[in-house]
């Protein structure tokens, strides 16, 4: 299978995700977190959060069938993929109870000469919005398909 260069600009359908305390708890535990703000609503409130907050990289958990659709559209060869880079930007931390409308798109695809041949760099961007339309987070990834 080869990469579909024409998939630049492809956008997934919007999906709705609710940030919940249990998901935050397990995510924080996997990171070895000990800070009670991630596990206890009262501790979170005492620290000034409306509810239990999510760690900065929590948007990585919002995977769904739409992401699979995006990957199909790009035509990745899964045996050759490397996660090149990742970025998360958010005006404030996500907290339990947040309802987010998420859309992802293929932002760019280009090739780069590597030691063993041409590497295909695929940039994707996901945006999560709150019900009022404001941006809750933006995630940017580079996925590299090795030769």
């Amino acid at each position: 299978m080869s990469i579909n260069m024409d998939s630049v600009g492809f956008e997934t359908e919007e999906t709705v995700h609710e940030v919940d305390r249990v998901s935050i708890k397990w995510f924080a535990l996997a990171l070895g977190e000990k800070n009670p703000i991630y596990f206890d609503r009262e501790a979170a409130k005492a620290a000034g959060f409306a509810d239990v907050p999510a760690p900065p990289t929590f948007p990585t958990t919002f995977r769904d069938a739409q992401d699979a659709k995006l990957r199909d559209k790009v035509g990745f060869d899964f045996t050759k993929l490397v996660h090149g880079s990742q970025e998360y930007e958010a005006p404030k931390p996500l907290v339990a109870g947040d309802v987010l409308r998420i859309k992802s798109r293929v932002a760019d695809i280009y090739t780069k000469e590597g030691k063993s041949g041409a590497m295909i760099m695929v940039k994707t961007e996901s945006t999560g919005r709150r019900p009022d339309g404001s941006v809750a987070f933006v995630g940017r990834s580079t996925i590299i398909q090795r030769p």
Binding site: L31, P53, P56, Q86, E87, E89, A90, K92
Partner: peptide, 29 residues
């Protein structure tokens, strides 16, 4: 997972500056 190390990077920033103050984390693996 590369994202586990990125998680540690985010945790490091949050531990230092306070989670409420973290605006962006960006890494190359």
């Amino acid at each position: 997972h590369g994202m586990l190390s990125m998680g540690f990077a985010g945790q490091f920033l949050a531990g230092w500056a306070g989670l409420q103050n973290v605006r962006k984390v960006s890494v190359r693996f």
